[in-house]
């Protein structure tokens, strides 16, 4: 990455200066070094069209979720049985569902549900997985054995079966689905965190910090976290797609989001009853799931090349 990452475009004026400042390796400040790193990452993202496409879709998803009311004219919940199961048309781009609700509107609002679930799961799972994995790796001994045993137990369930069992037990509902999915997602994160921690466990800087009397929490937070972060972030991004698919699968089986909430999996499942007369009811939410989950995969793949080249 030391050479020019190959942007053939000629820059001019302010942007050229900025570009040169960012690309310059003779840092004059930590800030510049950080910005340099980010900029180089950005350039490599641009250089990878597939990853960039994924990134663009994710940004679009966030924008759509944020601006949902502005992007739609109908109410996602208001029913009109006389308008039930109308095919896509100029007034209803993606047709209407069995209650006469506009499918386009519900797909747009469904973006919120999808983001909500995937972000919430990630926020729950990242610290838990890290703490369990890192402390197992750092402390070793019987704590390691016990923690890894628990992790293995969770890993030996097929993840959908586990999520299914948990959400069946907790009852339907989106929060419960989040918990259930989180329970299936943390073990691989913990594994990864442990492996990463082990590689740094006896590194000089860790030993030095220990000798200076730093506590475990501080060492984990100050030294291990920054080193593990890239691979964990990559893993979490790639996980997004399986979170979305699992959530959709739960919605499909009647767990997860409850009516009238717009959730793509549940919409696809409800539409299956009208499959033969209203193909749009399952096809469109299904495509939405596909596109978003593909985007996270593409982006995650690209991110790995950038952040975590060791595991690429």
């Amino acid at each position: 990455m030391t050479q020019d990452p190959g942007t053939p475009m000629t820059k001019s004026g302010y942007f050229a200066d900025l570009h040169n400042w960012l690309i310059n390796e003779d840092f004059t400040s930590t800030k510049q070094a950080r910005l340099h790193k980010a900029y180089v990452a950005w350039l490599s993202l641009l250089a990878n069209p597939l990853a960039f496409a994924g990134f663009a879709v994710i940004i679009a998803l966030i924008v759509i979720a944020a601006l949902a009311p502005a992007l739609t004219v109908y109410d996602p919940y208001s029913q009109d049985l006389t308008m039930a199961l109308k095919a896509p048309s100029a007034s209803h781009w993606f047709g209407t569902d069995e209650f006469g609700r506009d499918v386009y509107t519900r797909v747009v609002y469904g973006a919120r549900t999808t983001l909500y679930i995937s972000i919430l799961v990630t926020v729950i799972v990242a610290p838990i997985g890290f703490v369990i994995g890192a402390s197992a790796g750092y402390l070793g001994g019987w704590i390691d054995v016990v923690l890894m045993r628990i992790t293995d137990i969770f890993l030996s369930f097929p993840s959908l079966v586990l999520a299914l069992a948990f959400s069946a037990a907790l009852g339907p509902g989106i929060e419960n689905a989040v918990i259930a999915i989180a329970l299936t997602i943390w073990p691989p994160i913990a594994r990864l965190a442990r492996a990463e921690t082990l590689t740094f466990r006896h590194a000089d800087f860790v030993v030095a910090a220990e000798l200076q009397g730093a506590r475990m929490g501080r060492i984990l937070l100050r030294h291990i976290v920054p080193l593990c972060a890239p691979s964990i972030i990559v893993r979490l991004t790639l996980n997004m797609s399986s979170i979305i698919l699992t959530a959709a699968g739960l919605g499909f089986l009647g767990l997860g989001a409850q009516p009238p909430m717009a959730e793509w999996g549940a919409m696809a499942a409800a539409g299956r009853k009208y499959l033969l007369d209203a193909w749009w009811l399952t096809t469109i939410p299904g495509l939405a799931i596909l596109v978003v989950s593909l985007a996270f995969n593409l982006f995650g793949d690209g991110l790995r090349d950038i952040l975590d080249p060791r595991n690429a």
Partner: peptide, 29 residues
């Protein structure tokens, strides 16, 4: 390589129940 990669990622990203339903719709119905 690109095609193979996209084909692979698609397989990773497709909701399996959805593709099943669609296959039934097209190939059976």
């Amino acid at each position: 390589d690109h095609v193979a990669r996209i084909v692979g990622l698609l397989g990773h990203s497709t909701p399996i129940f959805w593709i099943g339903t669609t296959v039934i719709l097209i190939f059976y119905a």
